[in-house]
Design a protein around this nucleic acid. Structure first.
Lengths: 156, 156
DNA sequence: AGACATGAAACTTTCATTGTTACGTGATTG
DNA sequence: CAATCACGTAACAATGAAAGTTTCATGTCT
């Protein structure tokens, strides 16, 4: 596939969950992001480990936010979905015996590492709550268009 | 494959070419970076279009630097190899009708775009010559170990 | 007991990059 | 002018990572 969508999808889901009464099942969440329930469980496992969401089995079970959106940063989400590699470019992983390649790799790695540090700092500075407010603003400006256009509107 | 290696490989090749007497064939270059001559031609095509290297056909043909390394920035190389996508994360390409997803995507795109701008500015500020000097430093510090350890040392 | 929902393993599909083969064109040499 | 060398390009195969899918086990509520 093109790129790793987990962080984007997770943010999307978290904001929906914040507006969802009661628990949401993996199946319902899967419909929100047009995917499969198993994919949802896979993504959410990391968030549960970090106490961002909780899950319950059985009748009436499903997923629930375990803390307010204001206390979740984009960095938390990024790490919770498995901190996938940020960059699509860069040197190959294994070191080379060629001194030229070593110099190139070191310079490139250092430049990318610095960019990564800055980007992750940005992620740390943004809460999911802020993104939710972005949504609210869009909702107001749209004249209250139907905000969640998936088929059955499962209880929101 | 894992990530796009073209920029890293191109830098590696450019520095070797700078130390190569006469023209280097695609086959020789391919051995430097452990790949295939066709892959080399594919990568170099963009550099030729930008006047960074030139190629000649036939006997004694091959590739040659067309300008000094000091006049080539990492950004030039990045663009010459086709400016591949920088990031491995981010929202999916096609826009969604869901306002929540729109807000998430917009915020993420903006954050990544800012990071991309800064990283490309860094690339613009670094010349291939600087990286070549990194190599020279390593070469000195290594006690003049064999710098290009591919089998036949094809004329360097 | 039966229905519901997560947990997790295993497998398939999809997509981008890289690797490979094959053939055409131009240039040099004998 | 024929052979060889080397690039130019198209077409196809291999590889690897993320996402999609199937399947079964486990736990929970009615």
């Amino acid at each position: 596939m093109a790129r790793d969508l987990r962080m984007s999808r997770m943010l999307h889901v978290l904001i929906h969950m914040d507006r969802h009464v009661g628990r949401a099942t993996s199946e319902q969440i899967a419909q929100m992001i047009s995917t499969n329930a198993v994919v949802v469980r896979r993504m959410m496992a990391g968030l549960r480990e970090r106490g961002i969401v909780s899950s319950e089995k059985g009748h009436g079970g499903g997923w629930q936010l375990a803390c307010p959106l204001a206390e979740i940063s984009l960095l938390d989400v990024y790490e919770a979905v498995g901190h996938p590699p940020l960059f699509n470019i860069g040197p190959q992983a294994d070191p080379s015996p060629c001194l030229v390649e070593q110099a190139v790799d070191a310079r490139l790695d250092a430049t990318l590492a610095e960019a990564e540090t800055r980007l992750l700092a940005q992620f740390a500075a943004i809460t999911v709550e802020e993104v939710a407010q972005d949504f609210e603003r869009r909702f107001e400006e749209s004249g209250h268009a139907v905000p969640f256009p998936w088929h059955g509107a499962t209880g929101e």
